[in-house]
Amino acid sequence: MAEQVALSRTQVCGILREELFQGDAFHQSDTHIFIIMGASGDLAKKKIYPTIWWLFRDGLLPENTFIVGYARSRLTVADIRKQSEPFFKATPEEKLKLEDFFARNSYVAGQYDDAASYQRLNSHMNALHLGSQANRLFYLALPPTVYEAVTKNIHESCMSQIGWNRIIVEKPFGRDLQSSDRLSNHISSLFREDQIYRIDHYLGKEMVQNLMVLRFANRIFGPIWNRDNIACVILTFKEPFGTEGRGGYFDEFGIIRDVMQNHLLQMLCLVAMEKPASTNSDDVRDEKVKVLKCISEVQANNVVLGQYVGNPDGEGEATKGYLDDPTVPRGSTTATFAAVVLYVENERWDGVPFILRCGKALNERKAEVRLQFHDVAGDIFHQQCKRNELVIRVQPNEAVYTKMMTKKPGMFFNPEESELDLTYGNRYKNVKLPDAYERLILDVFCGSQMHFVRSDELREAWRIFTPLLHQIELEKPKPIPYIYGSRGPTEADELMKRVGFQYEGTYKWVNP
């Protein structure tokens, strides 16, 4: 592979701008107003304001973009700056750019259920340069409990009458099928589907988006991507930290609602779906819905739930269990780990287990898709061969690698495990991989909904998990304890083995 010439960040961002501006969906010269509902909250200060700053800094926003914060707290732009700027990672050389960014910011205080507050917000936006005809993007960085009041008031008082209007809704989209349907029906009564952007930030990850290209742009994968060759698929999300004093919020939802029903299920769809007619948003989402419709409700015998306990040999936070978090209700049975087996009941995947695993306070930070292939028929190497695996590593250190057998150097035919490896950090030294939120917010500006969740996708996802969630809430089974920093409950490994996964433990990928 030829040595790549190092590029400056300015040059890299210039390439990104060229890609972005050559499309006809990006209205570079139009006025846009980006409204952050819930501007005083954690999500706004840690993710949304920093993301908008990065896009502005790199010249990736339309030229005439204004940012308006809205929340109940009586704040000023200076207050917003004070709480969000520490997350910007701005350099001293960017000081003038930073001043320009905050000059485009404003803030309006108001209630979430008060019509007069929204009329005041609308008047404020109209007073901005060309504000009355601007395109408006409303980001709901809010708890779902206020979605209905907020969307109703936005629709009645704050819509642009000339430009387009788009609304970005953060997960969780309800707690179960019934609450999700209620919320979807409410929002759909106010906005068209092409105006609604239900954001799952995992769909903005580079390697998640790469799944489609790997599958449908490489001839070698087509013939082997089926039940005849693939023994099982494992989708993993692991965090090495616990709730760390923020367990009160987590306890309301648990690990299945927080990660599995959305992030992991979306990745499953991209692995299992048929080739779409095109890369058009609805063509892709149509195929994802077909996959979900082929999955039956989760069966309790295919589920393992766990909850982390303190590690007596650990240090600091590792010595504390979930129930030691003062914000967690006493005696909570909320799971911090889950392993679930699903089956896609169609011709391509009949009988292939899709194993979804996620948890907190585990032994490493990792998100990946792992396809394990069947054993080689007619073994001539005296059971020395391990199964081939194709691994798409989402985070950290984005990579695609194939675990395969090669001859060990020497005189004899002794096979050993090795890999074919594409590590993004080595291959793409001159490429700026956008943060997931950067990519998705740019998608909203461009009107691309491919990486957002459609209402029928959402409904099918909740259909699969709601009976299990209701059973857990009714019966309150005690989750299996696992030690902070471990791989999780051993019962999860036993479940995976029972459905056909072979864990060798003899080879570990190392970032080159």
Rank of each mutant, 00 (worst) to 15 (best):
E3Q: 08
V5M: 06
L7S: 08
L7H: 10
R9N: 11
R9S: 08
R9P: 06
T10D: 08
Q11W: 06
Q11M: 07
C13F: 08
G14K: 15
I15A: 02
E19L: 05
L20V: 10
L20S: 10
Q22T: 08
A25G: 13
A25D: 12
H27E: 10
Q28P: 14
S29K: 15
D30C: 09
H32I: 14
I33E: 03
I33T: 06
I35V: 08
I36T: 02
I36L: 05
I36R: 01
M37P: 00
M37N: 00
M37F: 12
G38Y: 00
S40M: 07
S40A: 11
G41T: 13
D42Y: 14
L43P: 03
K47Q: 13
K47P: 00
K47F: 12
P50T: 03
P50N: 03
I52T: 05
R57E: 02
D58V: 05
D58H: 06
G59W: 01
L60R: 06
L60E: 04
L61A: 01
P62E: 03
P62V: 02
N64V: 02
T65E: 00
F66E: 07
F66T: 10
I67K: 00
I67D: 01
V68I: 12
V68H: 00
V68M: 03
G69F: 01
Y70D: 01
Y70H: 04
V77N: 09
D79F: 03
I80T: 02
I80L: 12
R81V: 05
R81L: 06
R81I: 05
K82G: 06
S84V: 08
S84I: 13
S84G: 05
E85I: 08
P86K: 05
P86E: 10
P86A: 08
F88T: 02
F88N: 01
K89P: 04
A90I: 09
A90W: 07
A90D: 02
T91V: 12
P92A: 11
P92G: 11
P92E: 11
P92K: 10
P92F: 11
E93C: 08
E94A: 03
E94W: 04
L96N: 09
K97S: 04
K97M: 11
K97T: 07
E99S: 11
E99V: 04
E99T: 05
D100Y: 09
D100P: 02
D100V: 05
F101V: 00
F101K: 00
F101W: 02
A103R: 08
N105R: 00
N105L: 11
V108D: 01
Q111P: 05
Q111A: 10
Q111C: 03
Y112E: 07
D113Q: 06
D113Y: 07
D114M: 07
A115K: 12
A115L: 10
A116P: 12
A116I: 08
A116D: 10
S117Y: 15
S117C: 13
Q119S: 11
S123M: 08
N126T: 08
A127E: 09
A127P: 02
L128S: 04
H129N: 13
L130A: 09
Q133R: 10
A134L: 05
R136A: 03
L137D: 01
A141S: 10
P143Q: 11
P143Y: 04
P143L: 09
T145N: 07
V146A: 05
V146G: 06
E148W: 14
E148H: 10
V150A: 06
T151H: 04
T151V: 09
T151S: 08
N153M: 07
N153Q: 12
I154K: 00
I154A: 02
H155K: 08
H155I: 02
H155N: 10
E156V: 10
E156R: 07
S157T: 05
C158L: 06
C158W: 00
C158Y: 00
C158K: 00
S160E: 05
S160H: 06
W164R: 04
W164D: 06
R166M: 02
R166S: 03
I168G: 01
I168S: 02
K171R: 14
P172R: 03
P172A: 09
F173R: 05
G174M: 07
D181I: 05
D181C: 06
R182E: 14
S184C: 05
N185W: 08
H186P: 11
I187Q: 03
I187L: 08
I187Y: 06
S189G: 12
L190N: 11
R192A: 07
E193N: 06
D194Q: 05
D194P: 06
Q195A: 04
I196E: 00
I196Q: 02
I196P: 00
Y197R: 00
R198T: 03
D200R: 00
D200A: 10
H201R: 09
Y202I: 14
G204M: 15
G204L: 13
K205A: 14
K205G: 15
E206H: 04
E206F: 07
M207C: 13
V208W: 15
Q209I: 13
N210D: 15
M212T: 03
R215E: 01
R215M: 02
F216M: 04
A217N: 06
A217E: 05
N218Q: 00
R219L: 07
I220Y: 13
P223Q: 15
I224V: 14
I224R: 01
N226Y: 04
N226Q: 05
R227F: 04
D228P: 03
I230E: 02
A231W: 01
V233T: 01
I234C: 12
L235I: 12
T236V: 02
T236S: 11
F237C: 08
G242N: 08
E244M: 10
E244N: 12
E244H: 14
G245D: 13
G247I: 12
Y249E: 14
Y249W: 14
F250A: 04
D251L: 00
D251K: 04
F253M: 14
G254I: 02
G254H: 03
I255A: 14
I255E: 13
I255H: 02
